[in-house]
């Protein structure tokens, strides 16, 4: 099976390889894998106070298509808001890279990585807000923080969720 030129380009010159501090509150980390092939992919985003993704990094151990999918994802993520980032779909990645049907799951993995990085970031922000609320002496802003969650999509969770990623 031949790789497309775009896959080869990303494979040979991967963009944004690296890592960021996963304990940083402004960093969201997505770690996903394809148990069927033994691939593992880490994608991280840094979100600035204006809600935009200012940086994105990835590290992928897997086939060329998995590397290219995550490399492309980091390129597309930079400068987007979280809302815009959730609109990146696996088929956009697969189309851009001309992935053959047997490699579509690599683009699915990249989409999962994006989603899980965003979730991780939102979870941290929520935990941080909850902590601020708890430690505040003045009840008024505390109440306000509770009543107006910034992420309505997570409204079903009323308690701060401890990061699902165990510490080393």
């Amino acid at each position: 099976m031949a790789y497309s030129n775009k896959v080869i380009d990303h494979y040979e010159n991967p963009r944004n390889v690296g890592s960021m501090d996963k304990n940083d509150d402004n960093v969201g980390t997505g770690l996903v894998g394809a148990p069927a092939c033994g691939d593992v992919m880490r994608l991280q985003i840094r979100v600035d106070d204006d809600g935009k993704i200012s940086d994105a990094k990835f590290k992928t151990f897997g086939c060329g298509s998995a590397i290219a999918s995550s490399s492309l994802a980091t390129e597309w993520l930079k400068g987007r808001t979280l809302e815009e980032a959730t609109k990146i779909k696996n088929r956009d990645i697969a189309e851009e890279l001309n992935l053959p049907p047997v490699k579509i799951h690599c683009s699915v993995l990249a989409e999962d990585a994006i989603k899980s990085a965003i979730e991780d970031f939102r979870r941290k922000q929520k935990a941080k807000r909850a902590l601020q609320t708890q430690t505040q002496d003045d009840p008024e802003p505390a109440q306000e923080a509770q009543e107006t969650p910034n992420a309505p999509s997570e409204g079903k969770r009323s308690l701060p969720i401890v990061s699902s990623q165990p510490e080393r």
Binding site: L31, G33, A34, P35, A36, C37, V40, F61, H105, R168
Partner: peptide, 23 residues
């Protein structure tokens, strides 16, 4: 079904460990 089409998700702890090992 255990092939590439199976939707089984990897255990996060295993992924974390394997990422560390591969690094």
């Amino acid at each position: 079904d255990s092939g590439e089409t199976s939707s089984a998700k990897a255990d996060p702890e295993l992924l974390m460990e394997m990422m560390e090992q591969r690094e």
